[in-house]
């Protein structure tokens, strides 16, 4: 079924087009969040791994 308000409405313009903008914005914000945080996780892990390697080389892996 098609969204019915495809004609301009008094005082509001074309509602269906405006709604599509909000829907796309919501999904886009979600993906920016998901991808952005994934990159953050990946980088944090790389930095931590490097730090651990350095610590092991410098101080030895005494356990």
């Amino acid at each position: 079924m098609n969204w019915p308000i495809t004609q301009p409405c008094a005082g509001r313009g074309i509602v269906s087009e405006q709604n599509n903008t909000f829907i796309i914005a919501a999904f886009a914000v979600t993906w920016v969040c998901v991808i952005g945080y994934a990159v953050h996780l990946y980088r944090a892990r790389r930095v931590a791994d490097a730090r651990l390697r350095e610590a092991q080389q410098t101080f030895g892996g005494r356990t």
Partner: peptide, 12 residues
């Protein structure tokens, strides 16, 4: 039934 029939008739 169409969604938003009320709005359509009301605002247009």
């Amino acid at each position: 039934q169409m969604p938003q029939e009320m709005y359509k008739s009301l605002i247009k």
